[in-house]
Design a protein around this nucleic acid. Structure first.
Lengths: 339, 339
DNA sequence: CTGAAAGCGCTTACAG
DNA sequence: CTGAAAGCGCTTACAG
């Protein structure tokens, strides 16, 4: 394998629209129209201009177009609620999948997507022209959202926006989702279902509330252990504490907690599913564990669709924010299937 | 929970630099200098201008600044090699972590990062002004890279660029990494180490080559099973085939293949680590499985650092491309520790 | 059907 | 120390 060449660094002679116009013997208006499919030009002119542009390697300046049209083709995505660290490793798969899907959907619709931190030492928000922004889990009356709206940048939120004014939002029905899992475990024979919850996962509050409500409905005492998601080892310890309390099934609310629960079960010599039924949240990386997916890909895609809808048709704003409930999906696997 | 307000959509009266100048009783030059910390203004003027700007809620236009200065503060990131689908779910954690880290590092350095597909129906590449681009796993003589260089956009590659001219690149030493895992398994007592490989993971070719070389060195026959990463179920089937051949240790080269191997072992009633030692690639989601991390976070961060270095100091280009070898990290866990 | 001109909103020599 | 002017490279009324 040989060392690759280094490209020459030098003054690049930019080919501008005037160069194309001169070479094609037309005005810059005609070049612009020909290249953008506008105006009422004869096809011969259009083809000719395009040929010349190609030959010269002309690439329109995105900056100039943005300045002139007021549209950058750029969407922002940020998350303000969750810690100062914008990209925490906990609940990462959920957020990563949402971002991946939002990026892909944006590109399908002709937009590019920029992930930005809620705040930063550099003024990145000021240095990038955004046509709209998705805010995941906004704080109540989120100041960033207000600032964006003041600047005329439409905002769609991932997760219920509370009282923050937005053009649209997407969210799961967290309570119903939790109920569906608990019902499934009960159907599989569980009588004492424990809950393992991280204090600050996506929808954690609502998840715990849903669990307590379900327990109250059934008249069974809740068995819960919570832990701080960002503390290393906290999940393992909480899982061990939970199993000590003798549940015959456990629902792990925090994404990706399956290994911790499986480990804890192993250490207590509990067989899954024989002695302990198990269900977790997340995208189901472990093919043996029943998992509830919040379907972040749908959330990301729908948020982008709502946002682009507002951008492309700002006049047609609804009286209420456009809202879509993202369905969850329970994949039943061995870990919650009694043999 | 009440329905949030919808923000009013209307003509936004943009506050421009002229408005600030008029309100502050100075010229736009002075406003620009005061806000950007340039020129030789008395502090009183500077403070006064800033107060007026704040009061009016002035936000400089990123588009205008970009057009004038030729700098957008935007970096692109793309991957051309791996399939037409730019964000395949296989090897996703590796790519996602690289992107996450690249994004965070870019923000630290005052840049935002845009993930773009190698090609798209919409001309996103033409519509976004990039100061530089990271290309992950470029094809040999990658046409996209050549196009970017023609436009004066510096490129740094993730993975060896082959003969593609770039300003810098970062990569693991895949062969050495594989050897370190095999040595570890051999030290733990393994005598027949099998390799499970996806045909097209990051560094797969080099990984398999490293395995074969290691086997040749030791005079032991290679035991490998390969599969198509994108085919559902292919990993499970290949894992089963591999274990049929009776290895006493397995190294799973493809990221996140631990569950498949653990499942296959369970089905054959092989205990890990008693009957079978196990090591995998990936970020070690399962805390019981020994894993080799390629440290994509370092790759992403370093790629951005190299790129920003070139952007900020284009004159000081080296004769050879700047290159950094990303270290791998082996986390030894229970799965490869003989009791 | 085509072109000359204005202007998007800044930054930066340059002149005073 | 401060300002008037040019100009980044386009798109878009508007005039012919």
């Amino acid at each position: 394998m040989t060392a690759p060449d280094v490209p020459r660094v030098g003054r690049r002679i930019r080919v501008g629209i005037r160069d194309v116009a001169a070479a094609a013997g037309v005005s810059i208006t005609t070049v612009s129209d020909a290249l953008n499919g506008k105006g009422r030009l004869p096809d011969t002119t259009r083809v000719h201009v395009r040929e010349v542009a190609d030959r010269l390697g002309y690439r329109p300046s995105a900056a100039a177009r943005t300045l002139r049209t007021g549209r950058s083709g750029l969407l922002g995505l940020t998350t303000t609620m969750r810690s100062t660290e914008p990209f925490a490793l906990t609940e990462f798969a959920w957020f990563a999948e949402l971002v991946r899907s939002a990026t892909a959907t944006a590109l399908d619709l002709g937009y590019a997507l920029v992930v930005l931190p809620a705040s930063s030492p550099h003024d990145v928000w000021g240095n990038v022209a955004l046509d709209g922004t998705i805010v995941v889990d906004p704080a109540d009356d989120d100041p960033l959202v207000h600032e964006l709206l003041r600047r005329g940048v439409p905002v769609v939120s991932g997760g219920h926006p509370g009282s923050t004014p937005v053009f649209g939002w997407v969210d799961n029905d967290h309570v119903a989702a939790v109920r569906s899992v608990l019902d499934h475990l009960a159907d599989a024979g569980a009588e004492r279902i424990g809950l393992l919850a991280a204090a600050d996962g996506p929808g954690a509050d609502k998840g715990v509330a849903g669990y307590r409500a379900w327990c109250a409905d059934r008249g069974v005492p809740p068995i819960t252990e919570e832990y701080e998601a960002r503390t290393p080892g906290a999940g393992r310890a909480a899982a061990a504490r939970l199993l000590e309390r003798g549940p015959d099934a456990v629902f792990g609310l925090h994404e990706g907690c399956a290994p911790e629960l499986l480990d804890a079960a192993r250490e207590r010599a509990l067989r899954v599913p024989d002695d302990l039924l198990l269900a977790c949240c997340g995208e189901g990386a472990d093919p043996s564990v029943t998992s509830l997916s919040l379907q972040p890909a749908l959330a990301g895609a729908w948020a982008v669709e709502l946002l682009v809808g507002v951008i492309d048709d700002p006049g047609a704003g609804p009286l209420l924010p456009a809202q879509r409930t993202v369905p969850t999906r329970l994949s039943v696997r061995d870990s919650s299937t009694r043999r």
